[in-house]
C-alpha cells in the first residue's frame, strides 16, 4: 500500500468518526427509535468508489470501533447494534456495486435499507425483543430518503475529488 493512499484512508476514517460522533450526540426530532441520517455512510461510499471494497470495509469497521471507544460504549449493546448494521450494510453495498448496474444512489439506498435490517436483527438477538419488527416497515420506508440523501452527498464529493486530481 502506498503511503499516499494510506494517508487518504486515515483521513477518511477520521472524517467518518467525526460524522458518527456528531450524529450520536445530536438526536433527531423524529420520535422513532433507530432512525438517523447515516452521515457516516457518505464517507463509506466515497471510500468504496474512490478505492475498493476492502477499503470501505476497513473504514467502516474502524469507524465503528474507534467511535464507540471514544463514546465509551465499546462492547456495550449500542456497539453491537452499530457493528451489525454497518457490517450488513457494507456487504450489501459492495455486492450491489459489483453485481448490479445500480448507480451510487441505488447503492446508497441498499446500504441504508440493510443497515436498518441489520440493526433490527441485532436488537432481536441482543434484547430478544421481537417487537422491534413492528418498527421495521416505517424504518425501511424512511431509509430510502436518507439513502438518497447520503448518495447525493457522496456523489457531489466524488465529483469534486475527481476534478481536483
Amino acid at each position: 500500500m502506498k503511503t499516499k493512499q494510506m494517508m487518504n484512508i486515515t483521513m477518511l476514517i477520521a472524517i467518518s468518526i467525526l460524522f458518527h460522533l456528531i450524529e450520536a450526540t445530536i438526536p433527531l426530532p423524529l420520535p422513532i427509535p433507530g432512525f438517523k441520517l447515516g452521515l457516516a455512510n457518505i464517507v463509506g461510499l466515497v471510500a468504496l468508489y474512490m478505492y475498493n471494497a476492502e477499503v470501505m470495509l476497513s473504514v467502516n469497521l474502524m469507524r465503528v470501533l474507534l467511535a464507540s471507544l471514544m463514546r465509551g460504549i465499546l462492547f456495550a449493546p449500542g456497539f453491537w447494534l452499530s457493528l451489525c448494521g454497518v457490517l450488513l450494510s457494507s456487504i450489501v453495498a459492495i455486492c450491489a456495486k459489483r453485481n448490479t448496474s445500480m448507480t451510487i444512489f441505488g447503492v446508497s439506498c441498499a446500504s441504508s435499507a440493510f443497515h436498518v435490517v441489520g440493526q433490527v436483527i441485532a436488537v432481536t438477538i441482543i434484547y430478544s425483543q421481537f417487537l422491534m419488527g413492528a418498527l421495521l416497515p416505517i424504518l425501511l420506508l424512511l431509509s430510502i430518503p436518507t439513502g438518497l440523501l447520503t448518495g447525493f452527498f457522496a456523489n457531489q464529493v466524488l465529483k469534486r475529488i475527481q476534478t481536483e486530481r
Binding site: M102, T103, G106, L140, L141
Partner: peptide, 17 residues
C-alpha cells in the same frame, strides 16, 4: 438514477408495505 436504482427502491417500498 437509472432503472436498477428505481427497481430496488420499489422493492424496498413494497416489502415495507
Amino acid at each position: 438514477m437509472n432503472k436498477a436504482d428505481k427497481i430496488f427502491i420499489g422493492l424496498v417500498v413494497i416489502s415495507a408495505i
